[in-house]
Design a protein around this nucleic acid. Structure first.
Lengths: 114, 114
DNA sequence: TTGATATATACCTATATAGGAATATATTGA
DNA sequence: TCAATATATTCCTATATAGGTATATATCAA
């Protein structure tokens, strides 16, 4: 069996670094494909194909504007990821876990210095 | 070129659903490999191999305890993901974006009913 | 020492990319 | 209608899995 499809869910879609760049570029604004191409400096098919993956998991949506396609981020879809991560928040907050982590780091440094 | 390695970063590591299950199983506690096997019901090599990926991106760490390997989640590494997502939070909060989204949904429904 | 237990690793295969290049499709303007 | 513009899609290839199976490694217990 191969890896899950990139279009399986937002987790798989944003694994690709370039697709995170696209989301960063598009957040809070609307851009056409060529505007994005100019912004990120990749070739046009590459931008279109990555946008296509993002669209399939609903992380972006697009509308026709004459010859142009205007893309925008569906920020609420990022909530999916936020919510999965957030359930673990207590474990990285100022608590015993962090203290232990800190002590481990200190200990490793000490070991390396000997 | 192929997809980025699963061990490139936490984003790629958690794209695989089973690895998210492992993190959920391990969060806040320590478990040996066979305890995890019993918990999730996969075969042992599968658990070991997924743990290996998580370990390479530092999402889990492990210590030897006799014949056993005790695994734990490094929750603070999930912060990487949290922080990337969090920069977009304002765009899914109660603001104009959400209102627009709501109106889009309403509009689509109306269009479909015609 | 030896069998049993716990875990990791190697090997194999089907599959799904990501990127590049070429091309198709759609729309506009003259 | 036709050339130009904007974007999507197709085709190709190298690559990296994920899962299954078999096996290697390490440690314990008698």
């Amino acid at each position: 069996m191969a890896r899950s499809k990139t279009t399986l869910d937002p987790f798989n879609a944003i694994a690709e670094p370039r697709r995170r760049v696209l989301i960063e570029a598009l957040i809070g604004k609307e851009l056409t494909v060529n505007q994005i191409v100019d912004l990120v400096g990749w070739n046009q098919p590459m931008v279109s194909k990555h946008l296509s993956v993002l669209k399939q998991v609903d992380l972006v949506s697009e509308r026709k504007e004459g010859r142009f396609r205007v893309y925008r981020v569906n920020a609420f879809q990022l909530k999916t990821i936020q919510q999965w991560v957030l359930q673990f928040e207590q474990f990285w907050s100022n608590n015993l876990d962090n203290l232990e982590e800190y002590l481990n780091v200190i200990q490793k440094k000490e070991v390396n210095n000997e």
